[in-house]
């Protein structure tokens, strides 16, 4: 079950009925269970992933992602680790996000696609998409989803991160905006999504910590954090990303400056929808790589 730590022994025990031994995803747990469980999130950073001009170094980025997946699965090498994420029988939709800046880096989309293919999935059954997921035949037939997008503060949801990234699976996205997007976790119950997500990757290379203007962006409010947050529990990953954003706001503004809109959808994803764990006390953050300016 995704909410436990991925010890190899416990994983094998849990997935005894699964021929492929893949990471399993459960989209809801009882509140009683949720109180006892923890989630693992891997934070990996590398000072060399961006150069002085902000250009992404693909090989460094690929290594960061591999290290994170190994840490998450507790496998001994990259190949085994990715085979825990997808199997050759899967049809894989990589749900990206192009609505930035910052957007999901194309370099990262390519790395994920390469790793999925290397794990044995036929390239014809792998697709990367954002706005067109509902009409994309691979996503329509997908047995596995990989959710990848950057962390951005957001005018109406507080933050736009992994939970919100599935809004394009709705045929009526504005219908999810009510009450400052409180019920976004409900998106994960849609049939096209439910139970399919194998991996969540929150891109923290240049997070946006304050929203400005119609395009939600101003250079004054991004910084080179050079990290990725990776996990199987989207709520835990989002909650961890939120801690980093809030710490940055405190550092930048010099005083506690709450996000203009409370990102309450993250907490509600746990308390109302049972999608995952938002309580930092029950999130095990494993930190890899560059340590300067970690903020958490």
């Amino acid at each position: 079950m995704m909410y436990n730590r991925f010890s190899r022994r416990s994983f094998l025990k849990r997935s005894a009925g699964s021929a492929a031994g893949l990471i399993s995803f459960v989209s809801s747990v009882s509140r009683a269970d949720a109180n006892e469980k923890t989630s693992r999130v891997v934070l990996v950073r590398d000072i060399n992933v961006l150069d002085d001009q902000g250009v992404v170094n693909s090989s460094v980025l690929g290594r960061m992602l591999d290290d994170a997946v190994i840490a998450l699965t507790e496998e001994s090498d990259v190949s085994k680790a990715w085979k825990r994420v997808v199997s050759p029988d899967d049809t894989v939709g990589i749900k990206s996000n192009v609505a930035g800046p910052p957007r999901t880096p194309p370099e990262l989309e390519n790395v994920i696609r390469d790793r999925v293919v290397a794990a044995g999935v036929d390239p014809i059954r792998v697709a990367v998409d954002d706005r067109g997921v509902l009409n994309n035949p691979v996503f329509q037939k997908a047995t596995a989803l990989i959710n990848v997008r950057p962390m951005r503060s957001h005018h109406w949801a507080g933050v736009g991160s992994l939970i919100k990234n599935y809004i394009m699976f709705s045929d009526n996205p504005p219908s999810w905006h009510e009450d400052s997007c409180a019920n976004l976790a409900g998106l994960w119950e849609l049939p096209i999504v439910r139970g399919k997500t194998r991996l969540n990757i929150l891109v923290m290379l240049t997070p946006l910590f304050h929203s400005k203007g119609p395009h939600n962006y101003n250079k004054a409010y991004v910084w080179d954090y050079k990290g990725l947050l990776v996990g199987t529990d989207p709520v835990a990953v989002d909650a961890t990303g939120l801690r980093i954003i809030e710490a940055k706001r405190l550092e930048f503004f010099g005083e506690y400056q709450p996000l203009p809109v409370s990102p309450k959808h993250i907490k509600l994803a746990e308390t109302k929808f049972g999608l995952g764990i938002a309580d930092p006390a029950r999130i095990d953050v494993k930190k890899l790589g560059w340590e300067d300016g970690l903020l958490i």
């Binding site: 005018h155 996205p173 504005p174 119609p214 395009h215």
Partner: peptide, 12 residues
């Protein structure tokens, strides 16, 4: 407007 500026459209 949401097709152009999803999310921020609610502000306007």
């Amino acid at each position: 407007l949401y097709k152009y500026i999803d999310g921020a459209a609610e502000v306007y």
